[in-house]
Amino acid sequence: MQAENTHFAGGFTAPATDAAHAFRAAMNAMARPGQFFDITGAQAPAGISIAAGTLLLTLCDPETKLFLADDVDSEALRVWVTFHTGAPIVPAAEADFALGGWDALLPLDQYRIGTSEYPDRSATLIVEQPAFGAPTAVLSGPGIKDQIQMSLPDVTALQRNTLLFPLGIDLFFTAGSQVMALPRSSQISEEA
């Protein structure tokens, strides 16, 4: 029997199929920048959204290094992550995945951006947001028919990431039980 409010709680009920549904949402998000998708199944300790917790359980395991930014880092979350995924907690510069609010995750240049021969060896950021705000930028590029509006926390910093292509970081934005993504391939311009 699972006790509430312990690190044993909040995992997938049916790990294989819950993860399959969650991955489909994550894949759709990464393939279609600027569109949001429902992603549910896991409940991380207080303060972490359902979407972010579900992403961690879907993508992290003992082979992926995880960075927890100051605003989300807590003993409760570390124990939960360790029990459910086994992902080692590391400093930002070594991370495959990083979780936190936007300000706490900065600066962006501390994350791995891959190498020219292996651009996939780069970090994926999971940016927690209270809600998806009003659009601040217009995106175009792979996955986008013509163009799409998206709310971004810092247009200039993310434009700089795009310039690194094919290097760079990729980002998931999570709010509640929804996820959006911004891959490095998206061209970003300021909302007119």
Binding site: M30, D96, P142
Partner: peptide, 22 residues
Amino acid sequence: EQTKRMIRRAILKGLAIPGYQV
């Protein structure tokens, strides 16, 4: 599940870098 996670991570990086072989 661990194999699927590894493949899924590769798919996500593949989508982020279209045409690059992960």
